Every structure is written in structure tokens, then in C-alpha cells.
Computed example of a mutant assay.
Amino acid sequence: MDNSKLRNHWGVSFKWTELHQTREQLRPQMFTYDKLANDCVKRLNELSPPTKTNSTSESNRPPKRDLFALLEKHADDDSKLKQLWTEINTVPEWVDWEQVKRGQEVFFRYGLAVLNVLNFESLLGGMGSPRVVETLARTGGFSATVVRRRLLETLQHVLQVSLSLDSIKPGGSGHQSSVRVRLLHASVRSKILDLVDQDPDYYDVQNWGVPISDLDCIATINTFSTSVVWLGLPRQGIRLREQEIVDYIALWRLVGYYMGTPNEAFATTATARAMMESLLVSEVHPKETGIVLAKNIVIGLENTFPTFTSKEFMDAMARQLNGDQLADDLDIPRTSLYYQILIYGYCFVVMTIAYGNRFFPVFDKASIAVSLPFYL
């Protein structure tokens, strides 16, 4: 093996290949974005203006508009809206519904372990990306007071895309949820860019790229798929079978398509893993704001539904799933030996349940059958 091609970033070792991309190669995607969705949100705002309020209290704010419902209602009233409506209801030729169904089953087979990853690695560890943090800081997305609600919204989306084939097909709850996320991203992006037009110092587009750019959206799908199978699950002692990996990534490639994300990187496991490793190198560089938001996440989730866990337990789990190097840079405290042992024991239980489901199909089917009504 050519040692000059070996890399180690944030505790992850890998070989650099022609499939990997440097920061300079990824940079153009910082300035491209889902322009069709932006155009459609602008048109929807003209057709159905949002309600204005001066209240800073969430309880006093008017209900959020259902942008998906507005898109469906006005799809025939405007060429851009029609174009988007047709796109999101057209199933790509590369979709294999049986494979997508198997990908959904992967989520339920390893559900508890996957949720651990989404909470403590994808979400909390994601605060190590300065560009993502710059956008979140301007939307109040992870202030301590709203972090729990945002987490539950994310959890709801994951469940909706995983529940059944009907849920992920056009018109299903998972499909609609994904399109709503796409329109929400476009709305946030448009607002920030409008503010930049008024005050160029509000957000440094040249340095940080367009907010919620194509690269940001690729990174988002990465946190739900590739980071789960190659980082978060192995750090809990769980390694998926190759077919499970292929199926799970195929599910999230389809979700990415609905969300307007360039999805070519998720066409194969090789390209998907190379993108994950490229993002680790180019995008993860914790800054002060990210440290603050990471602390807010822990504060917002401490001893609350759905985890009801202590700060010390969450700190220990975050260190387990993100590695000591990234945890140190995010200023996540080192925990006592008691909590380290507790985490190892917890991961052993999670691993036992996961492998029990995998090796005994009757348990697997029973587990999925029991879990579905709970999530519904």
C-alpha cells in the first residue's frame, strides 16, 4: 500500500483515491444551490404571502405555512411551480422499490443504534462544520430553547421516510416531509440572501458559500446515511453487511432526490464513502460558535423526552461516537470512569439487540412489527 495516500482525520483512517475530492474540488458546490426551489418559494410568497409578526415568542407566532400544500394547490398556476411539482412526483429510473424497502428495514433492525448516531454524532458532531454553524447561528436553529423541538422534527422526518414503501412513494408522508424540508431550506436560504443584499456584512457569501448550498445538502444526506453505516454504527460495535449498506444508502439517495440534493455521490457505496471521507477533510474544523451550539444541544436535551439522560451520559456518548479528537475540539467534557464503563455496557446491549435481530429472522420480523405501531 502506498503510505503517501493514507489519511487520518478526526480518528478516521482511510486511503485517498481518485474518487475523493479536495476542498478546492468541492468548493464550486458551495456556490450552487437548488435555484428551482428558491424560485418556487418566491412565487408561493407572492400567491400566498406569509403572515408577519413582531413577536419573538414561539408560542405567539402564527402557525407555519404548509409550503407543500401551497405547491400542490398552485402547481398549475405557474410554470416554475409546475416544473417542481412534476420533478418531485417523477420517480428516477435508478429507483428499485424492493431495495428501498430493504433499506427501510435496516433502520428498524438497528433503530436504537441509528438514533444514537443521529442524536450524538450527526447532530452534535455536525457542529464541527463552520459553514453549517454560520447558517444555524443566523436562524436560531439550535439555541438551547428550541433544540429539542428541532430534534423531534428531524426524528419525525427520519421515521416518515422509513415507515413503509407507501410513505416514501410520491404522495406518502415521507415523500411530503422531504419536499417540505426542501422548501424550508429554500425559504431560509432566500431570507439570508435577501438580508445580504441589504447588508453584505450580515453573512460572508464569499467565505462561507451560499447558505444551504448543494455541498451543504450533500453533507446533510451524508449525516443520515454514510456517517451512520461507516462511523456511528461501528463505534457502537455494529458493522452492517454489504447488502444492508447498499440498500440503506439507496433509500437516502432517493430522499436526497426529493430534497433537491445532487445525489450522484450516493450512486455506489464506493463514491458515497469517498464523499464522506472528503467531507471529513474539507468541512470539519470546529470554531467557537460551533462549540456554543454543541453545548446548547446537550443543555436542550438533558433529562428530557425522548432520552431522559443526564448531561454526563450524553457527554460520554458524544465522545464515543465522535472520537476524542473532535470531542476535545468541541469542548465536550471528558467524563468519569463510571460513565465510560456505562457507555461500553450500553453499547454492548445495543449491539446484542442489533445482532440478535440480524441473525434470527424471526426476531427481526417481530421487532419491526412491534416497532412500527410505536412509531406510528
Rank of each mutant, 00 (worst) to 15 (best):
E93D: 00
G174L: 12
F142G: 04
K365W: 01
V133M: 09
V228Q: 08
W208A: 04
V132R: 11
F374W: 15
V181L: 04
R253S: 00
D197T: 14
D66K: 07
G172A: 07
E18D: 06
R102K: 14
N38F: 10
D324C: 08
V370D: 11
L330R: 07
V196D: 12
V41N: 05
E134M: 11
R239G: 01
V255H: 11
L233P: 03
S187Y: 10
V158C: 02
T22M: 10
L115W: 08
T309K: 13
P262W: 00
D77L: 12
N303D: 14
S225F: 11
L330V: 08
G345C: 14
K82E: 09
A75Y: 08
M259P: 05
S129I: 06
V284F: 10
L70Y: 10
S4V: 08
G323Y: 06
V188N: 09
S190D: 15
G140L: 03
P286S: 05
R131E: 04
L155H: 03
S167T: 12
L254C: 02
L44V: 13
F359C: 12
T226E: 04
L47Y: 15
A294F: 15
V205P: 01
M259E: 00
T352D: 15
V117H: 05
T261E: 02
V95T: 09
Y346T: 13
E153C: 00
F313T: 15
A272G: 01
Q104R: 11
M314K: 12
G172F: 11
I343L: 04
G260N: 07
E134P: 13
H157A: 14
V91T: 10
L84M: 04
L279I: 00
P211K: 11
K287G: 00
I343R: 02
G126I: 03
L342S: 04
N322S: 06
K52L: 13
I238H: 03
I297G: 08
K295D: 10
S278I: 02
A250E: 06
H20K: 00
S122D: 03
H9K: 01
L233K: 03
V229W: 07
Q236K: 00
S187F: 15
F359E: 08
T261H: 10
T90G: 08
F107H: 08
F305G: 04
W208D: 06
K82F: 02
Q206G: 06
I212W: 13
S178D: 09
T32P: 15
V284I: 13
D216A: 10
I221G: 05
R102V: 06
S173F: 10
L115Q: 00
W252S: 01
A366R: 07
L337N: 12
S129T: 11
N3T: 03
L112K: 04
P211E: 01
N60T: 03
E24G: 00
H74S: 09
L36M: 07
K42A: 15
R239A: 02
G140I: 09
P130K: 09
S178F: 02
Y203F: 15
F348P: 07
S227V: 05
S129R: 12
Q176T: 14
D194R: 14
H157R: 08
